[in-house]
Structure formats: C-alpha cells, structure tokens
Amino acid sequence: MADTTVITFGTFDVLHVGHVRVLNRAAELGDRLVVGVSSDALNFSKKGRNPVFSQDERLELVSNLKSVDEVFVEESLDLKRQYITDHQADVLVMGDDWAGKFDFCSDLAKVVYLPRTPSISTTALIEHIATTRS
C-alpha cells in the first residue's frame, strides 16, 4: 500500500502551541507531512506586515518539528494545485477559517479543514508582546 502524503500551508510566524497542534493533527492523517511556509512577500501581501521571523528562520523552525517531514517555500496562494501535484499529496489540510475556499483542489487531493486551537493567534501574541514591552 502506498504512503499517504499530507500537505498544509501557513506562515508559522511566532511559532506557538496552536501551530504545533494543527501540524500534529495534519500528520495523523497520513504517513508523511509536507509543509508550505509562506514566503516573506506572500505574508506581507496577505497581512500587510512583515513576519517577525524571516522566511529562512520559519523554514528552520517548522522543519525541526518531529511531525514534519519536508518543508518548502509557498510563493503564492494561487499555486495550491501546483504544490499538491509537485509534492504528490493525497490530502490537503487547511485551517477551518479557510473552509470551502480550497474545495477546487478536491479532484487532486482530499481536502480537510481542521479547527484552529481556540484563543491562540499569532496576531494576538504579537500585539500582546508589543504592549508588554512598552
């Protein structure tokens, strides 16, 4: 029986327990987990700010998590289908805040939307850190 490859994507800036939990849950859906880490430019285009940690630092952080087998740089949201094909993914995992937005990939891979960890957000963490340093 062939191994099942799971692919997911994210910025993974200011790595926190919510990131670890979603990656662990994604990994449980297959035998191999591939993670696309948003480039600095993609993050800026999505969020209007640069990440706290650089693209290379975020790649290093994510690649060192035990549930992650491979990482690559995600350059564009519009290339999801290409990334699925390039990495021969069987399952695409996204956070449930994207529910329905990637169903157009369901002919290439099973699309699963996982719930995010409640009350944990990178943006909220960054804001909290900024206000406690003042």
Rank of each mutant, 00 (worst) to 15 (best):
T123Y: 06
V71H: 04
T132A: 02
L79Y: 10
N64C: 09
D31E: 10
V20H: 01
I126K: 04
L61S: 08
V34H: 01
F12W: 11
H87F: 11
P118Y: 08
T11I: 14
S54G: 12
A41I: 00
Y113L: 05
E28H: 11
E28K: 10
V52C: 09
N24L: 14
T85N: 11
I7G: 08
S67Y: 06
V91Q: 15
D40L: 08
D90F: 05
H128C: 01
T85L: 15
G95M: 04
L77I: 13
L15E: 02
G30W: 13
L15Y: 15
T132H: 08
S38L: 03
S106I: 03
A124E: 10
K110V: 00
T131L: 04
V71A: 00
R21Q: 12
D86V: 09
E60D: 10
D56I: 01
R21S: 03
T8G: 05
V111A: 09
A2H: 12
K110F: 09
S45C: 03
S54P: 03
G48S: 05
E74V: 07
S54K: 05
W98R: 07
H128L: 06
Y83S: 03
I129A: 08
V17C: 07
S67Q: 12
P118T: 07
D90G: 13
K80R: 06
G18T: 12
D13Q: 07
H87E: 11
I129Y: 09
S121E: 11
Q82W: 14
G18E: 11
D40H: 07
S119E: 13
G18P: 07
L59P: 11
E75V: 04
H19M: 06
